[in-house]
């Protein structure tokens, strides 16, 4: 393992989806869902991927755990290039990563009991040989996510459990192989508000205890503060801003991040009559995104350069990167 404790490195990672135009045409175009993401995650750290629908955050998450094959760039996991792993190596990578999905009701095969659902990863990776040991592992995982007494839950079918309970089972399934990296794709957005915080607390506690690297995908900036050390703001397949979560929330630099923060409701009685200024328009189509800054058509502070050239990432402050021409000058300083 890396001496610096580095878990995951993404270098200019790209995921483009091929689409065919026309019936017999061989002409292909691409949906550039993730277009050049560079990022590093240390052992036991959590990072939030924040963005609106269609920003590519889910695609990025799925590409990282290799549910999608990247079209370009590299994924380095524990100093090993996993970008194009095949067969047995990929199976190893599957064991090292876990996934918690958005929809707990769809996350389980309805013909499997909870026990069987949790046993499946163990059966596939054959890490535990004996039946008794497998059962022990399953029960331990259920305890881990506080579904006790475990016997009450293990032999039920998914439809007998509530959304919150199912999401706990999903977390149990994601950690049962003792992975080092967990991708949580909007794990609480389909749950009742009352159980959201429980699930997030559980995830956070597990992450700290098991020293898991966690990629937390969300559209809700409010929960990132609670959950993650780092935050990445995504827009139209690009990372617009990345920094410590606290830093981003306290000092958002990119116009898009600011707009996002503005849109976050705050429980302040003075806000009741205030009209919030949000950028007009829609995110660009990703089939042929503008070659300029992708936020430029909506940006309130855009100037000439923004419409001509795509900005690189500027380090506006220490550890605070922004993909915006506004901060070009800070480079020179």
């Amino acid at each position: 393992m890396n001496s610096e404790g580095r878990l995951l490195e993404l270098e200019d990672l790209r995921k483009w989806f091929e689409i065919r135009r026309g019936f017999l045409s061989s002409k292909v175009s691409y949906v550039k869902a993730v277009d050049g993401v560079t990022f590093t995650l240390d052992e036991g750290m959590a990072v939030s991927l924040v963005g609106e629908s269609g920003s590519g955050k889910t695609t990025l998450g799925k590409t990282i755990i290799r549910l999608y094959e990247p079209n370009g760039g590299r994924i380095i996991f524990q100093d090993r290039d996993v970008t194009h792993l095949k067969a047995n190596d990929l199976k190893w990578y599957r064991r090292m990563t876990g996934l918690v999905q958005q929809d707990p009701f769809g996350a389980f095969a309805s013909h499997f009991t909870i026990f069987r659902s949790l046993e499946e990863p163990l059966l596939i990776h054959n890490t535990v040989k004996s039946k008794e040991e497998r059962a022990e592992k399953v029960f331990k995982a259920l305890e881990e996510v506080r579904l006790t007494p475990v016997e009450d839950f293990a032999y039920k079918y998914p439809h007998m459990l509530s959304g919150g309970q199912l999401q706990r089972v999903a977390i149990a399934r994601a950690i049962i192989l003792e992975p080092r990296l967990l991708v949580a794709d909007e794990p609480v957005s389909m749950l009742d508000a009352s159980v959201r915080i429980e699930i997030l607390t559980l995830l956070r506690r597990l992450q700290e205890r098991l020293r898991l690297g966690v990629i937390y995908i969300t559209h809700d900036l409010a929960t990132t503060r609670f959950f993650s050390e780092w935050a990445l703001i995504m827009y139209a397949g690009h990372v617009m801003e990345k920094a410590f979560t606290q830093e981003i929330l306290r000092n958002p630099l990119h116009p898009y991040t600011r707009a996002l923060l503005t849109a976050t409701p705050e429980p302040n009685p003075e806000n009741r009559n205030r009209f919030k200024q949000v950028p007009p328009g829609e995110p660009p189509a990703l089939i042929d995104p503008p070659k300029s800054c992708r936020f430029s058509p909506r940006c309130p502070r855009a100037f000439d350069k923004c419409f001509k050239e795509e900005p690189p990432e500027f380090e506006a402050a220490s550890g605070h990167w922004v993909k915006c021409w506004l901060y070009e000058r800070s480079e020179g300083k």
Partner: peptide, 17 residues
């Protein structure tokens, strides 16, 4: 296209399985 298939792929289930 169901999520549970994707979940199974994420924990390494083969096509056959």
């Amino acid at each position: 296209s169901y999520p549970y298939i994707e979940a199974a792929q994420a924990y390494g289930a083969s096509n056959m399985r």
